[in-house]
Design a protein around this nucleic acid. Structure first.
Lengths: 216, 216
DNA sequence: TATTCTTTTTAATGAAATTTAAAATTAAAT
DNA sequence: ATTTAATTTTAAATTTCATTAAAAAGAATA
C-alpha cells in the first residue's frame, strides 16, 4: 500500500518519504521539511491516531494530515479527525481522490510558512532563501559573489546581459570598465555548474554579454 | 436538510446563517463574518461548485468549505475539491461526522487558541511560551539574548539570515555595523547547542550570514 | 549600599576563505 | 593574418570568521 501511494505521488512530481511504522514517521516529520502527511491508522509500533496527536503536540499545528483507514464507521472517522487529522479517506479509495484531497490541503493560502522561492532552469535549482543551489539533485557550493551572480543571471534567464549591467547589479560598480571580474566569475560558475554536464546553461554572446537558457 | 443541519449546529453552540440559494450564500460570505461554509452542490440560482470557486476568487482563500452532496463518485469528489472545497461529505451522512469535520476545519485556524507553540528542528525543541529549549530531551539553559537569537533563527529555519537582519530583529540595531555581537552570540549558542552533538544545526554561510537547518 | 555573580558588549588575534588584478592563453571575427 | 574578445591561471590583497579575553553593564544578595 505504502509503495503504491509513494510511487503514484512521485509520478505526480511530489517528493515522498516513506515510514513503515509510527515512530519512524514521527521522526521523519521532525527531521525533514514535510508539507503534508498521509497517515494510515493501523501501523506497527505506534498507532496512526497517536502519531497525529504527537504531531500536533510537537507544534506542527498547521501541517496537513490525511488519514487512511479501512475502518469506515462514523465513530472511527470522528475519533480520527479529533486526534488532529485534517481529512479522512476510507479504503479502498481511488488514487485520484487522494490526489484531489492533497491538492485541497496544499493549495496556496493553506500553505503557511514554507513558501520558499525557487528558481529553476532545466535541472538547475536555486533556493533564494536557503542560498543553496543544486544541479541534477547534487548540491553545489557557491561563494557569496558567485551566488549573487548566478541569482542575477537566473532571474533574467533567456535574456542577454552585458557586462555593465552585470557589474552594476552584482558588484555595484557603475563606471570602472577596466576590470574583468565578470569574465572571471562567469568562468568560476561554469566550472561549478556546467563543466561536468552535457547540457550547458551559461552561454556567451560575443560582443554582447552572457545569457542563461536551455539550448535548442 | 438545511433546517436539520442548522438546528443541529445551533444546538452545538454554533451561530448559523442559512442561505437557500447560491447567490444569497455568496452574499452572506461577503456580508457576515463567516468562519466556515457548509455547501450543498445542488442549489438554486448558482451551483455549489460555482459558489466555492467564487468564494476563492473573492479572496477568501483560507475560509473552510465543506461540500455536501449525494453524488459520491470519485469524479464528483475530485471536481468538488478542485473547485476550492476543503472537504467533501456524501449524503446520507451522520451528523456526528459533519461535526467532527467542522471541528477539524476550525481547530488551529481558530482565533484565541493560545496553546504552547513549539518549534522543532531535528531533536532540538523550543517552547516559545515557556522559554525553554531542549536537545535530545536534555534541557539547555539560555540567557535571554541567547534565547531571542535562537528563537529568531529557528523561526526562520532553512533560511540564511545576514548579520543586519539579525541585529535588527534581536538587538533592535539598524545601523551600527561596527559590532560583532552576532558572531559572539552565535558562538555561545554553538557551545550550548551544537558542540556536544554530531549533527550540527547552526551553519555559517560565508559572506551571507547564518542558517539553521538539518544538513544533508 | 556594597559585594558578588551573571550577562552583555567590545576588542584583538590568527586562521581560513574569498576576491581581485594582471598576465597568459585560447578562440572568434574581420 | 591581424585584431579583438573571451577564457584561464596565478598570486597577492582583502575580507570574513571563530575564538578568546577583558571590560562594562546589569541583577541578585547580604
Amino acid at each position: 500500500m505504502a509503495a503504491f501511494i509513494s510511487q503514484g505521488l512521485q509520478e505526480e512530481g511530489y517528493n515522498v518519504f516513506v515510514a513503515y511504522d509510527g515512530i519512524y514517521g514521527l521522526e521523519l516529520v521532525k527531521q525533514k521539511n514535510i508539507d503534508l502527511v498521509v497517515l494510515d491508522i493501523i501501523l506497527p509500533k505506534m498507532d496512526g491516531r497517536e502519531v497525529a496527536k504527537q504531531i500536533r503536540t510537537l507544534g506542527f499545528t498547521t501541517l496537513p494530515i490525511i488519514m487512511l483507514t479501512a475502518l469506515g464507521t462514523t465513530e472511527n472517522i470522528v475519533m480520527g479527525l479529533d486526534c488532529g487529522a485534517d481529512d479522512y479517506l476510507i479504503k479502498p479509495f481511488k488514487f485520484k481522490e487522494l490526489l484531489a484531497r492533497i491538492r485541497a490541503r496544499t493549495r496556496s493560502g493553506n500553505l503557511g510558512e514554507n513558501n520558499n522561492q525557487k528558481i529553476v532552469l532545466s535541472d538547475l535549482e536555486m533556493d533564494v532563501d536557503a542560498k543553496s543551489v543544486t544541479r541534477a539533485g547534487k548540491t553545489i557550493k557557491l561563494t557569496s559573489t558567485e551566488f549573487r551572480l548566478l541569482e542575477f543571471l537566473l532571474k533574467n534567464k533567456n535574456k542577454v546581459l552585458n557586462r555593465v549591467e552585470i557589474l552594476e547589479s552584482v558588484w555595484d560598480i557603475n563606471f570602472n570598465l577596466g576590470t574583468n571580474v565578470v569574465d572571471v566569475y562567469v568562468n568560476y560558475l561554469r566550472n561549478k555548474i556546467d563543466k561536468q554536464y552535457n547540457e550547458k546553461l551559461i552561454h556567451t554572446v560575443i560582443g554582447m554579454g552572457y545569457i542563461m537558457k536551455i539550448n535548442n
